[in-house]
Amino acid sequence: MSAWKLIRTYTILVYVFMFAPIAVVLLLAFNSSQFGGFPIEGFSLRWFYKLAENDAIVRAFKTSVTLGLMTALVSTTIGVLASLALVRYQFRGKDLVTTLLISPVLVPETVLAVGLLIFLRWLHMPRSFLLLLMGHSIVALPFVVLVVQARLVGIKKEYEEAARSLGASPVQTFFAVTLPLLMPAVFAGALFAFTISFDNITATIFWRPTGMETVPTQIFGMLRNSISPEINALGFVMIVVTVGVPLLAGGLARYFARKKT
């Protein structure tokens, strides 16, 4: 099975490519000097201490996570419904609808941001958290639609028809058959949406109410003076939290499960 080995090696190389910059960020979080390149001159935890003292970035982190989770919820819900319509039904104007749904990524964000602000002025509404949430959801929508659609196309209609012929209602069919099969795509979509929101900078700058900072806007502001390795430390903490906690939870769950038997 040498072809499989080749595929595996190739995959590993791609992962190495994906992780090289992350590895660098993680390593440099422990570098003692500010503009340290390689070789690393000294090991230090000072950037972690500075990070812990930095209230602003901790607050921004909380805002970003909240916003990201809510964005994931909103855009995944809207996106799954829309994808169902696109894949499961034939109707006129489908090309136009698809293009509309994907349009948020076609419009340069700077311009979309300004256009929406002009609209708000017309409505006499101030910038708010809700605007930011809706804006992020719409920016994330195309990603959700594309990934869910691609998966739905692969789920044969016959499965649903089988359920219907066994007496399930359309809603029951959706929850018992379609949704479970769709789950990987729904989570991929939600993950995309969270990520898009968490990482968005251009539109966020324009839409946020004064005084609200997300992690990217906070970092963007800090760039005028210099890049502090605190940001690397923040990256380290985020990765440890997002990977470490679930791993730990999974490990504990397995441990207790084993104890029971």
């Binding site: 607050r59 982190f61 909380k62 805002t63 996570v65 909240t66 989770l69 994931a72 708010s128 958290f129 479970p180 789950m183 989570f187 939600a190 993950l191 969270f194 946020r208 109410p209 004064t210 005084g211 609200m212 900072e213 939290v241 997002t242 906690v245 679930p246 939870a249 999974g250």
Partner: peptide, 25 residues
């Protein structure tokens, strides 16, 4: 699904969503 829900949930809880919602507001 369970794993993914766990992942998202864990990330959310750790960040203290319940505590510091909508700081700006």
């Amino acid at each position: 699904r369970r794993t993914f829900v766990g992942l998202l949930g864990a990330a959310g809880i750790t960040a203290g969503v319940s505590g510091g919602v909508m700081v700006g507001m």
